[in-house]
Structure formats: C-alpha cells, structure tokens
C-alpha cells in the first residue's frame, strides 16, 4: 500500500527520525561536492543533485572499519568485537545505491555470514528517492537497478511535485513511517497512476539503446576475450583503484592491526583487486602479476555468468561512478563496449 507525505512535512519526519537514530543523507560540502554524511537537521539534506560520487556504501563497509579490540594485560590478551548497533536511516539515496547495498548484504549473508556487517545493515533503514530525471552517466536500466525500484528498499519516495509518494516494503520501512505516522496519509489512486507515468517517462529517458552486457558476459565467462585486447586496454588503466573505491558493489578488503604497545584495533581496510600486491603470496609468486590479469579479474567478477548465477545479478548497478572516477579510460561501459566490438580505441 502506498502512502503520501506533503513536501512541507518531510522536515518534520526527519526531525522524528533524528530522534530515533542517526540520519545519513546527501549534504553539500563547503566546496560544493555532495557527500553522504550524518545530518543534524533537516535543512542539510540536498535534494537537487544527480548522485554523489562518493558512495553511501561507506556506511556499511567503511574504508577503515574497526572490528576487534585487542588488549594485552601482562602475558594475557583479551579480544572483544567492536559492536556498532546504531540505528541509522539512509535518507534520499538513489535507486542504484539501494540496489548496491542489497547486493553487498546478500554477499555478506553468504555462509559464513559476517556478523559485524549484518549488525549494521539490520539496523539500517534505506529510504530511497526514485529517479524521475535519471542522471546523465547512469545506465541502471541495463542492470535492472533503477531508475525506480521494485525491491531493495525499505521505503521508496517518488517526487510528485507537491508531495512524495511513499512505498513501504519492509518492517523497517514501516517503523520509519511510524516514527511520524500522523504526517502520512494514504496515497490517492491518481497519485499511484502518476508515479507509474513518471516511471515510464524515466525509463524512456534512456532511449532505445539497449545494453550490451549479455554479449560481453558470454565472452568473459567463456574466456573468449583475446589476451591481446586485455593487454591493450590495460595500458589505459593507471591502476588507481578508484573504480573499487566508488563502486557500490565492490567489497575487497584486507585485515590489519592498528595501534601499538599492547592495545590494537583490528581493522578491515578497503582494498582493491586492481593493485598488484593484492594477490602476492609470501613466496613471491603472484598469480595476477600483470595489469591485464587484474583487469580481467575485475570484469570477470562483475560481468561473468559464473558470478551472475551465484549472485543473481551482474556485479554492476549501472551507477556510472567509474566513468567519472577512472583515472584512465577503462571504466565499465568502455570495457564492455570494447569486448563486444572486439577492439579498443580504433
């Protein structure tokens, strides 16, 4: 059942959410960038922006994530998990990012499940805003992750001009609405129809061009992408690893102890399969020594049938971030196109 909230009431809803927990929403920095940050008041929320380059996955998989506290007392050591049970609302997040979070959660739920991640995600309510005007670089339509969502959200807002239509899909979503129940009313039939029209229009926005993941996937899965092509493309990658930092579905990490003199925090730190020492073994052997091997790995993980079968989705939610962030020119759409055409930059 769909609800509606008048735009002028959203601030009051947010005030309620702020009392119930932490609210993380897009905020404009002093330098003009939009970053997902903890807010203290409703006015901080930015509504008018395509999407933030820095992904909200930071909330669930922080770049530096303390997981265990280790203390030495004389001869003995004590270890305790660092537990984060903060109730959080991720507010005004884009559809692709909500899908990305669902993807990460599925991954972390796989046996053996990661309790520290799941504690955070179980306490996180995802309130997304459907993209009535899709962003310029995104291609969520090809990856089934937008512009409107059918799943992967707790509550989805749609901008109807004067009000937001609010679709609630989970008990967490219901609880978020219940924090300020009186501000919501049932949506009218007209509003529901209007939402549908907006979705159709948004989908049309992507034009006729269909996605080419399928043919690329076939070639990647069966190792039919010529090595020479990988080699050629890999000269256009500058090995920054930025693609892994901003991608909503990337989750590579390392585990390191931070601290000194008997108190350490064991941290999960962000990593990237694009860095050469990522697979370096203690013996000096490196199974992915060349850049082309690592590049191949990235695209195998994201666009192979093998992973598609396991994850039930391609490892790309079409957010387009890698296009902006790639220091080289080897972002997802460019590489997928090159694989389909069998050539690069010609």
């Amino acid at each position: 059942m769909a609800l509606a909230i008048a735009k002028e009431n959203v601030a009051r809803w947010l005030e309620k959410l702020l009392q119930a927990g932490e609210v993380v929403a897009p905020v404009r920095s002093s330098c003009g960038d939009v970053l997902f940050s903890t807010i203290t008041s409703a006015e901080q929320v930015v509504w008018d922006f395509p999407n933030s380059l820095h992904p909200p996955k930071e909330l669930l998989l922080p770049q530096t994530d303390p997981i265990v506290r280790i203390t030495r007392r004389g001869q003995h050591h004590e270890v305790e998990p660092i537990i984060d049970r903060t109730r959080r609302f991720l507010f005004n997040v884009r559809s692709c990012d909500a899908k990305g979070i669902a993807f990460l959660t599925r991954m972390q739920e796989m046996e053996p499940a990661d309790a520290s991640y799941l504690r955070r995600s179980n306490n996180l309510t995802v309130i997304s805003l459907a993209c009535t005007t899709p962003c310029q670089l995104g291609f969520c339509i090809c990856t089934d992750s937008g512009p409107f969502l059918r799943d992967s959200y707790d509550a989805q807002l749609t901008d109807l001009g004067e009000s937001y239509l609010v679709e609630v899909a989970s008990p967490k979503g219901e609880a978020a609405v219940a924090e300020a129940q009186s501000l919501f009313r049932d949506a009218t039939e007209g509003e529901v129809t209007q939402r549908q029209k907006l979705e159709d229009a948004a989908r049309r926005h992507f034009g006729e061009e269909t996605c080419h993941f399928a043919s690329a996937m076939r070639r990647i899965s069966t190792c039919r992408v010529p090595d020479a092509l990988w080699e050629k493309m890999s000269d256009w990658c500058l090995e920054c690893g930025g693609c892994s930092v901003v991608c909503p579905t990337c989750y590579c990490f390392s585990v390191k102890d931070l601290g000194c003199d008997g108190t350490w925090i064991r941290c999960r730190v962000r990593d990237s399969c694009q860095y050469s020492a990522f697979t370096l073994e203690a013996s000096g052997h490196n199974p992915r020594a060349q850049r082309k091997d690592r590049m191949k790995r990235r695209f195998f993980h994201k666009v192979s049938a093998q992973y598609y079968k396991r994850d039930g989705a391609v490892g790309c939610v079409g957010c387009g971030r890698c296009i902006k962030v790639c220091l080289g020119t080897t972002h997802m759409p460019a590489v997928v196109a090159a694989i389909r055409k069998g050539k690069w930059h010609e």
Binding site: P112, D271, Q306
Partner: peptide, 19 residues
C-alpha cells in the same frame, strides 16, 4: 592451492579464482 588470504571466510576476495 596456496593463495594470498586475508579473511579466510570468502569475503575479502584476495584468494578468489574464478568464482
């Protein structure tokens, strides 16, 4: 097989070969 490993539980991707 020996591989660079970090987590040991199929989460960190260091030891991934194929899927």
């Amino acid at each position: 097989l020996e591989r660079m490993m970090q987590c040991g539980v199929g989460k960190c991707n260091h030891c991934a070969i194929g899927h």
